[in-house]
């Protein structure tokens, strides 16, 4: 187990290196540069800026300078937000995304799992049909439709919550619900499928033949196997949700990390692109490791090697 984790962490470093390298060169293929704004910059100022950020060096030299900095854990300063370290930008915005993401995930699991289990247990009844129709609707509805609908109902009509912004304690509710309900739809469908698959297995019949009561069959015998597809889905979903969604942040005017993902590319903010991408990759790698461990715990046939 420990060896598995150490090996995976070592592999992760390689992955992060590849991600960093790819990002470094790809973003520089993009037309324009960090200082090409709407207003043309005097050549002398531009030269000054490039010198200050080391952009006057040959690209291969820049690569090694940046790589060395990242390897030390220094994410370099942003090129656009002058002098602000990228680490600070991430540290300021990630907590917002994390709060929204975690509560969205809680909603997604809290709604999706029970709905999927009930739908599987009451297969082909009105309960199943209505849960699955709602789930289908949730999957089909894009966030930019769901978000404004919730804003309209709870922000404008009922006036219970702020339409947008990040000022009050309750401001996490609407964005989390928007994201959470949509993920709940996926989770409900995956849970239903997984549970149905397991409930049809011979070993469920064995459990019934042993006199195990229905609820205990679901909790003790079926749930473990039934949750495997959900766990596999949750890993990547978790990384995606917690690092922020650009669309959700736009709709609800949130100072989250998602805006920087997109914004830094538009701004050709080379160092911020590198920082956010490597940060996201690191998170994804860690969460996938967690998912693998969780799956091995759920399914004894999975070996961690």
């Amino acid at each position: 187990m420990l060896r598995f984790i150490l090996r995976r962490l070592f592999q992760s470093l390689l992955v992060l290196g590849v991600v960093f390298t790819a990002t470094f060169f790809l973003i520089r293929l993009k037309p324009g540069d960090p200082f090409s704004g709407e207003k043309a910059m005097p050549a002398s100022v531009r030269a000054q800026m490039e010198k200050r950020y080391g952009l006057d060096l040959p690209v291969w030299k820049q690569y090694f300078v940046h790589a060395a900095a990242f390897a030390r854990g220094d994410l370099l300063p942003s090129l656009r937000y002058e002098g602000v370290p990228n680490a600070k930008i991430i540290a300021d915005s990630f907590p917002v995304s994390l709060v929204i993401g975690l509560s969205a995930l809680t909603i997604a699991i809290g709604v999706g799992l029970p709905a999927g289990i009930v739908a599987a247990l009451r297969k082909n009844t009105w309960l199943d049909y209505s849960a699955m129709s709602l789930a289908m609707l949730g999957i089909c509805l894009p966030t930019f439709v769901m978000g404004p609908v919730l804003q309209w109902i709870f922000g404008l009509k009922l006036g219970w919550l702020n339409v947008a912004g990040w000022f009050e304690r309750s401001d996490w509710i609407l964005p989390s619900a928007t994201m959470g309900l949509i993920y709940a739809a996926y989770i409900a469908r995956l849970t239903r499928g997984g549970m149905l698959e397991v409930l049809n297995q011979d070993f469920i019949r064995t459990a019934r033949a042993k006199g195990v009561p229905g609820r205990q069959i679901v909790m003790g015998h079926a749930l473990r196997g039934g949750l495997l597809p959900v766990v596999a889905f949750l890993g990547p979903a978790f990384a995606g949700i917690t690092t922020g969604s650009f669309i959700i942040e736009k709709i609800f005017q949130l100072p989250g990390l998602g805006q920087h993902f997109v914004g830094s590319v538009f701004n050709s903010d080379y160092t911020l692109v590198q920082a956010t991408t490597v940060f996201y990759a690191a998170l994804l790698v860690l969460i996938n490791l967690g998912t693998d461990i969780l799956q091995a715990w759920l399914n004894p046939r999975v070996r961690l090697t």
């Binding site: 070993f203 015998h221 473990r224 399914n299």
Partner: peptide, 15 residues
């Protein structure tokens, strides 16, 4: 009590 035809699938693989 009962026992079944296929012992490969009649035991719960997760327990």
């Amino acid at each position: 009590s009962m026992i079944f035809q296929d012992p490969m699938t009649s035991l719960n693989p997760y327990l």
